[in-house]
Design a protein around this nucleic acid. Structure first.
Ligand SMILES: [Mn+2]
Ligand SMILES: [Mn+2]
Ligand SMILES: [Zn+2]
Ligand SMILES: [Zn+2]
Lengths: 130, 130
DNA sequence: CTTGATAGTGATAATGATTATCATTCCTGA
DNA sequence: TCAGGAATGATAATCATTATCACTATCAAG
């Protein structure tokens, strides 16, 4: 049975009280900054345990796994390749077409991941060249 | 300037004469099996160099980068979580809707990656349970 | 044909995110 | 109170990929 320990509660609170996407290191830094003492291994285990319980969700972006609140409707992500910002979008029609594409190939779809890369509005406006 | 050395030619031939997706280790094993002697570092560099020239393309699947021929039209991937098989599909409407979703958020789209996970037709038919 | 500059190779060390170990501590239910 | 499972934290281990570095291949002069 999953124990909601002090450490796990701290991780969960941190994530639930925000609207962003956190990797393990983000969480570690934030908790240390707020006076918590928690080992990095515990953070990894805590994140995995919380996700297994459906209390948080995650996306694999590049080589890092990012965690976010689970109380949001399904959505996909747009990642700014300049500032790293992660925005979200939902598109029911795209989802439906995915199911159709899977069905057409007799593929039993269990999950998907759609990531769009590019420049967020802010980065696009500002720095064009290097 | 890019030199198409013996090693790089071997990598390129291997990939071009196949229809599958190769990670660095796949390439290493295949080349060793056919009598080639090539260091793993050279394979990584060769794959990167060939991709930079547009001679091959790659997809990041999980924690591994997979390379494939570049002479195919754009497509996305469906990965069987049981046997690891990677199938492909193209869906122009999904692509168009992605551009629309990006435009709506004033996001300058430069690339995307759509991966569907599930069971391929064969795995779905056969083993249901473990 | 010698150079010299530059690119490429291969063995191996280093990196960086994540997992595994393991001794220790915390909880919980009998 | 106590035994056993669950969790923690420090640290070692993994694993794909990169970086180093000494050495070799290529090529364009001179
Ligand atoms: Mn999100
Ligand atoms: Mn492909
Ligand atoms: Zn940005
Ligand atoms: Zn399969």
């Amino acid at each position: 049975m999953l124990r909601l320990t002090t450490q796990r509660q701290a991780i969960l609170d941190l994530i639930n009280q925000s609207n962003r996407h956190w990797d393990a290191d983000d969480v570690a830094r934030a908790l240390l900054d707020t006076g918590h003492s928690i080992g990095i291994a515990t953070i990894y285990r805590g994140l995995a345990a919380l996700e297994a319980q459906g209390l948080i969700e995650s996306v694999q972006l590049g080589d890092k796994r990012h965690y976010e609140r689970a109380d949001k409707a399904h959505h996909d992500h747009m990642v700014c390749t300049r500032c790293g910002n992660i925005d979200e979008f939902a598109h029911p029609t795209i989802e439906a077409l995915q199911r159709a594409a899977a069905a057409e190939k007799h593929f039993r779809l269990t999950g998907h991941q759609l990531v769009m890369f590019g420049l967020c509005a802010r980065c696009d406006t500002q720095g064009g060249a290097t």
